[in-house]
């Protein structure tokens, strides 16, 4: 399902520093790192390490070659840190984010608020394919969804998880699966592991 060709679904690619940029901020969801993942990033970002800041979110790992990383407990702290940067960010700066899709879009949304445009942002999907699902009916959000149909955390309706994706909400659309025939719920399968 990650490879759905629906046009609203973002495409992600490996992070690669923009050599023309003035400053570089790398934000990594530590739990999604594969063995050797940090070393790979250190290789990729070696040309810009003098102007690189690295934020590691979650586990406090050592990150040789990525400057002196700053450790943040959770994505909410990233959002706060972006909003509170005293000197702000410049038009020549770039933000690189790696992690699960909900993580990527939480950070991207916060970055947009402080002025980062899409051209200043790179997103790389890593870790689980679990989805954040937005309920079309109650507008509640259900996190860490791994199944094709999921009970809404807000209203309890069984939602069919569509591929249609909203960057603004960082979420996939969920629509009541048995609205036409109440109780007719298809087999629930693990599809976004």
């Amino acid at each position: 399902m990650l490879h759905s060709d629906i046009k609203s679904r973002p495409t992600y690619r490996a992070l690669e520093p923009d050599l023309a940029a003035a400053g570089h901020l790398l934000v990594i969801e530590a739990a999604t790192l594969q063995p050797g993942g940090l070393a790979g990033l250190a290789d990729a970002f070696a040309p810009v390490v003098a102007n690189l800041h690295t934020w590691l979110v979650g586990e406090a790992l050592a990150a040789p070659g990525l400057g002196k990383p700053w450790h943040l407990p959770a994505v909410a702290d990233v959002v706060d840190a972006l909003a509170c940067a005293t000197r702000g960010y410049g038009i020549g700066d770039r933000l690189y984010v790696q992690g699960t899709e909900p993580f990527l879009w939480s950070v991207a949304t916060a970055a947009a608020i402080v002025g980062f445009g899409p051209g200043q942002l790179q997103l790389c999907h890593a870790g689980s394919l679990q989805r954040r699902v937005w309920c079309t009916h109650c507008h509640g959000v259900t996190e860490q969804v791994t199944t094709n149909v999921v009970p809404c955390a807000g209203c309890g309706r069984h939602l069919l998880v569509r591929d249609h994706f909203s960057r603004r909400l960082g979420a996939f659309m969920g629509v009541m699966v048995d609205a036409e025939a109440p109780g007719e719920i298809p087999a629930i399968e693990e599809v976004f592991a």
Binding site: A22, G88, Y89, G90, I91, G92, D93, V114, G115, F116, G117, Q120
Partner: peptide, 9 residues
């Protein structure tokens, strides 16, 4: 001039 502009300009 161009080096000193904030994000979002």
């Amino acid at each position: 001039l161009l080096a000193s502009q904030p994000a979002g300009t």
